[in-house]
Amino acid sequence: MDFVMKQALGGATKDMGKMLGGEEEKDPDAQKKEEERQEALRQQEEERKAKHARMEAEREKVRQQIRDKKAIPAGCGDEEEEEEESILDTVLKYLPGPLQDMFKK
């Protein structure tokens, strides 16, 4: 009859004593194992965060490259007025003194 009960309950016979109020088996290394497990989890989390940070930095680099491609290149746009002023200043440098004074007024 014992054999039939053990087969019917499977591995639950060890836990039956605990459920009925018996004492639990205490593992002397349980505290040490739990600390090691917590340390391993913490290291895994740090590695995951570092990997995520590297991937995000790479993505941002690619995003910036795309933005740079769409940006207006230097020399295009509103800078024409500055170029005209610099051309006028250059021409004035080569004029004789009295003509320069006349254009400056």
Rank of each mutant, 00 (worst) to 15 (best):
M1R: 02
V91T: 07
M1A: 06
A12K: 15
R37G: 00
M19A: 04
G75N: 02
R63H: 11
L20C: 09
R67H: 08
A71D: 04
G77S: 03
K26N: 15
K14W: 07
K70M: 13
V4P: 01
D68S: 00
R67I: 14
L88I: 05
K70A: 15
L41W: 08
K33F: 03
M16G: 00
G11L: 04
E45Y: 02
Q100I: 03
M102E: 13
D101L: 14
E45M: 03
E85I: 15
S86L: 14
Q64E: 13
A53S: 02
K70S: 09
L88E: 11
S86K: 14
E80R: 00
H52D: 13
S86N: 15
I72T: 12
R54E: 15
P28C: 07
M55R: 15
E35C: 00
P98I: 02
T90R: 09
K18M: 08
K26Q: 14
E39L: 06
T13P: 00
Q38D: 03
I66P: 00
L20K: 13
P73I: 10
E46N: 03
D78M: 04
G10M: 00
K33H: 01
P98R: 02
G75F: 02
A12S: 15
E34I: 09
D15Y: 13
L92Q: 06
E23T: 06
K14M: 09
E34Q: 04
